[in-house]
Nucleic acid binder design. Structure first.
Lengths: 227, 227
DNA sequence: CCAAAAGTGTTGACTTTACACCCATGC
DNA sequence: GCATGGGTGTAAAGTCAACACTTTTGG
């Protein structure tokens, strides 16, 4: 039956974005013990105002980093005794995907000493079991990108096929054949070809494409989702 | 920061087994309010003795149904305000898979009015949001059986190809072509052909096979796992 | 010899991979 | 006109889906 041990519940958010073709994770620098001055995931205790756990995750992300209006989904719940020196703390982790062009004004909360993007392949030492949480999030993203339109949640509304390919390469951490990649995506018919071109380079401008989440939902035989 | 609202944490277990080619879920009948006399998932509050959440899930399953030593993995955490009339209760749900031949002596705990297997396609009204949890677990099992050896966790150590096919048919809730099914499995080389035969019927005895989890783990290009 | 479940192959359609060159543009 | 990334096709291998009959056994 019910024991009197105090259990506290937190949420932690693994927020990914692609910057210059690199997968990066949003971290905050802790200002307080435990793990003072260590980098950690944005997150915090659930508050009475949070209607759902997802609200709590989005709320703590906003409070600690000033990032809001992003895609968010639950990852996994970590609750081993001893994962937090303060006592029994169960944390529900979330995956967030942030669009590449999003105007972010990173702003640490008063109880953090900083906020920054870190390349997923070159992370600092992390507080608590946050390294394990990130590893888990990365694995989820890797699988998810293969059979769901997760890649578009990391891209602006208009993007080139190369941008899309870079997302796959960054997430899967390997290079792919560009002919096969383009062929596959164009054959699937998920992309709307726009009449616009990227003006980024001083070379041949690349065509822009768009992805419609709504059209995708209508597909009768759309690929399987894990969530 | 930390609010004083009391949050309690439970675990709930969706335990599946295949009985006579049907996917079934293990339920308990509640003896107390709320949802008195309603069927519900086995589960309960985390105790100070639980080293991990998985221990808690296995522990509550044992206490409430007398089922133990089964495969268990985390599913999803449900924590919307209002999912439990008693206050804020966050529940970490678990999926359990039980081998077909396992000798189970179902035994309700003193605070339950009964334990029983229910066909997944004909469930009674359920307490709390347990229907949603089962739906979620079923979806997970359905995906998982496609790219992981989950099916073998529902079978005894020695089984016929028909037994295996029945597991797939029950979980996927559709029939499959037996020639293609056998061909695919035999071609994968995951099954050890035994020199024994099933003596079940009065007709032609079927060959028994075994699956080795250890051998499977060794495979260099083994299929993808979601978890 | 009959009833019942066990077991077995082929074909066509489709998908996946490997692989290298020409094109369009800005400077 | 050149440097740079944008954009394109084909063939071989492999995978997947559809489909029906023979074999073995107990009674």
């Amino acid at each position: 039956m019910e024991r009197l041990e105090t259990i506290r519940v937190t949420v932690d958010v693994v927020a990914f974005a692609i910057h210059q073709g690199t997968l990066e994770v949003l971290l905050i620098k802790r200002k307080q013990e435990p793990f003072k001055s260590c980098w950690a995931l944005p997150g915090g205790f659930i508050s009475g105002a949070d209607e759902t756990l997802e609200d709590a995750a989005a709320g703590r992300l906003k409070e600690e980093t000033n990032v809001c209006d992003v895609y968010i989904e639950q990852l996994y719940t970590f609750g081993d005794r001893g994962r937090d020196p303060r006592g029994r703390v169960v944390t529900v982790s979330y995956l967030a995907l942030i669009k590449q062009d999003k105007e972010l004004e990173l702003k640490a909360s008063s109880n953090a000493a900083g906020v920054a993007w870190w390349p997923a392949n070159k992370l600092p030492d992390l507080a608590f079991d946050h390294q394990a949480i990130i590893t888990y999030g990365r694995r989820r993203l890797k699988y998810k990108i293969e059979y769901s339109p997760a890649a578009f949640k990391l891209l602006p509304p208009k993007f080139t096929l190369r941008d899309l390919q870079e997302v796959y390469e960054a997430v899967l951490d390997k290079s792919v054949d560009n002919r096969n990649f383009r062929k596959k995506f164009l054959a699937r018919g998920l992309l709307q070809e726009l009449a616009e071109f990227s003006q980024q380079s001083s070379f041949r401008p690349a065509r822009l494409y768009a992805f419609s989440e709504e059209d995708f939902e209508q597909l009768p035989d759309r690929p399987i989702f894990v969530f």
